[in-house]
Design a protein around this nucleic acid. Structure first.
Lengths: 241, 241
DNA sequence: GCAAAAGTGTTCACATTACACCCATGG
DNA sequence: CCATGGGTGTAATGTGAACACTTTTGC
């Protein structure tokens, strides 16, 4: 952190009066969803001339009266109408030349939301749910940002039960497994998956069955948030390079 | 990411011409070391009047011609003389009011270095190695930044062999275990620790013994970087909330 | 009755934990 | 010879992976 003493003979002008050391800051939100058995991300079409026809993440400039978390929630709320949703900072990107209009540093956030719950909002905007695996080029350095957030998502989803943000209130184990497999891009054994998930103690058996499926219906579960709050912490110590 | 189209009727002025949306950005480096059986961090005395006598992390303002990683390496190099060292971005902090001189957003990096190798450099500066567990108040929000970086360190040290950055070229297993225990703030079983570390295949037995210890000397090892490069990849899939 | 997915247990290999005694060195 | 930490092995337990058949439903 710069202080007067750290740089005594360079400059004692208050920070806010040195425009050459000031930069634009933005937040970009990588909002993941799941639909049609695919992991998707919420994108907008960028029409800066430099990025004609390319996809862009949802973002905006940081405003003087808000902090980074606040800005990211504002973007999420403005685009999806959602308020109380998991939103987590991932990384800050500040390469020279990453933005054609000037120097912009951006902080990336990611979130997981249920696609079905927010269809209406989406159609009113120019937003699209885009299959993550099909994305090639994006505007700015957004492909790099997306890749970073996807890796964070893959890691996080195995450490914390954020995956339930993607689920309907009631879901079957098959649906849950499909989402894990889509995110991790891997196949899992069905029996072991059931065993493991039951062992977490986080599934509440609703005693209900799927409706309107062309096969034997599965049982429906919901996420037991209270159980999670109860068992939350135990600091693990184990080396595993 | 803001584009003209994202905010068409608000502003089409190029970003760099809207000073009200510009901010100072800094980087802060949380440089961990290990000495006298304690985890330490490199701090400087802050003498902003607002933070008289409080400790501060090493940081500086981002300059127009460098990116965030570059700035953090500049700070590290300027303070320690080190060039080729692990340095990783952790988190960006942008609370309103976190800096008394104005709005400053800061990106925190952490690093691990060997205390003995850089004693000379340190004495030339106003720097101190401070035991992490004894730190109470710090300047700015640096206590929060340090806590965040410490948690990241604790996690990372169990996932990647960065701990060897803290070691001398040659080290005994006891020294290695001491550092793990200091970082994780936990005791480990000596025999199991040995088994586990040998099992990683990352220790090169140098066939040498400790010198000048008042007890049976232990064998010396070094980190086998080539072995690590070889075995690096395997994407693990496992749920563990 | 056929297709499609649900539901269910066991075995094996491997990893983690807990635990105690003798050894080598310096003083 | 004493103090200090180095070095070693085994048994019990827990965890992850592999694997096949019967059941239920819609059509």
């Amino acid at each position: 952190m710069p202080t007067v003493r750290n740089r005594p003979n360079i400059n004692t002008t208050p920070l806010e009066l040195r425009p050459e050391f000031h930069f634009a800051i933005s937040v970009d939100c990588v909002i993941f969803g799941f639909d049609e058995d695919q992991l998707k991300v919420l994108l907008i079409n960028c029409d800066l001339p430099e990025f004609k026809g390319k996809w862009s993440l949802l973002g905006d400039l940081l405003r003087p009266d808000e902090d980074l978390d606040g800005a990211s929630y504002r973007v999420l709320r403005g685009r999806t109408g959602l308020e109380d949703v998991f939103l987590e900072q991932v990384h800050t990107f500040g390469h020279l030349g990453r933005h054609p209009a000037g120097r912009v540093i951006t902080t990336a956030y990611f979130s997981l939301i249920n696609v079905r719950d927010h269809q209406l909002k989406l159609l009113e905007n120019e937003l699209h749910w885009h299959p993550v695996r099909e994305i090639r080029e994006m505007a700015f350095d957004h492909r790099e940002i997306l890749d970073t957030c996807l890796r964070t998502l893959q890691k996080k989803v195995q450490e914390e039960p954020i995956i339930f943000n993607l689920m309907e209130e009631k879901f079957s184990l098959r649906e849950l497994q499909n989402i894990f497999e889509a995110i991790l891009d891997a196949k899992m054994d069905r029996r072991n998956f059931r065993k493991k998930l039951f062992a977490t103690g986080l599934l509440k058996d609703l005693g209900e069955l799927e409706q309107d499926v062309p096969h034997r219906p599965g049982r429906l579960y919901s996420f037991d948030a209270e159980a999670y709050a109860r068992i939350r912490k135990k600091t693990l110590v184990g080396i595993d390079f």
